[in-house]
């Protein structure tokens, strides 16, 4: 049913950012199926992917309703052009290896937890409900990935080096989490959700002690910047979308 768009400025964009983060990281993690180092992790990665896809479904459905143009979760997930996706660049980067995968999950979940915590008090009741459900999942992802960061960082010399390399590679992309922008300002002013730059202290408080316990060196901030949440993605995004969108693009209008 098509409704009129009555959303506050930035509201739809903000919800798309949330939904696309979950969608794109869920898509990446689902590549692990059958290829993990131990069976328990095959299941854990599939489970994390499933949680994220579940979050994406709720959030994209909500974004579609706010937009009022009749787009459902699948039209938003599969039929937008690359520049219309609003996920953090970090989510779309290739998995590379188990080390980069769990370090990424850790850095991301440590961001999702305080974000969803704040969103449980959103003036958007639907968003608050999704956040309350998803917060439990994000807390589990944070704990699971954090344990692996510690095992790898404080494991063998090889695993320490791989974990450090993963952290060094991913760290610059975390600056994007906190890049201030007018959307966040508007949404925050309307009581819909927090401005993400206000989450940095909470994120660091969750991340740094685990990295220290893992005997990893916290990288310094550099001038590097990425812009996925503004719709300017990495070279990897087009390939991810080509795979993910193939059926919907090849068979337009088909129901599955």
């Amino acid at each position: 049913m098509t409704q009129r768009n009555t959303a506050a400025p930035g509201h739809i964009e903000y919800v798309l950012r949330l939904g696309d983060n979950a969608l794109i990281l869920g898509q990446r993690l689902s590549e692990w199926c059958g290829h993990a180092p131990v069976l328990e992790e095959d299941m854990a990665l599939a489970n994390t992917a499933l949680d994220l896809i579940g979050q994406a479904r709720l959030l994209l459905t909500h974004a579609g309703r706010l937009e009022g143009r009749g787009r459902d979760e699948d039209q938003l997930a599969f039929l937008r052009g690359e520049r219309d996706y609003r996920n953090l660049t970090l989510a779309e980067l290739p998995n590379e290896d188990f080390g980069r995968t769990v370090v990424r999950n850790f850095l991301f979940a440590a961001f999702q937890v305080p974000l969803y915590q704040r969103l449980t008090a959103s003036s958007d009741a639907e968003l608050a409900a999704v956040a309350a459900k998803s917060l439990k999942e994000a807390r589990y992802h944070l704990s699971h990935a954090g344990e692996w960061v510690i095992r790898l960082g404080d494991g063998t010399d090889v695993s320490h080096d791989k974990a450090q390399a993963a952290l060094d590679y991913l760290w610059p992309y975390t600056a994007e989490f906190f890049a201030a922008n007018p959307i966040d300002d508007a949404v925050s002013a309307a009581g819909i959700g927090p401005a993400w730059h206000n989450l940095e202290a909470d994120w660091e408080a969750a991340v740094v002690p685990v990295l220290v316990e893992a005997t990893l060196t916290v990288p310094a901030r550099t001038p590097f910047a990425s812009y996925g949440k503004f719709g300017r993605h990495s070279e990897h995004m087009g390939h991810l979308l080509a795979t993910m969108q193939t059926m919907q693009r090849t068979y337009p209008g088909a129901q599955w």
Binding site: S30, C33, R57
Partner: peptide
């Protein structure tokens, strides 16, 4: 999994 045609089927 990565090519599932809808989010419901992917899940």
């Amino acid at each position: 999994i990565t090519r599932a045609p809808s989010l419901k089927r992917k899940a």
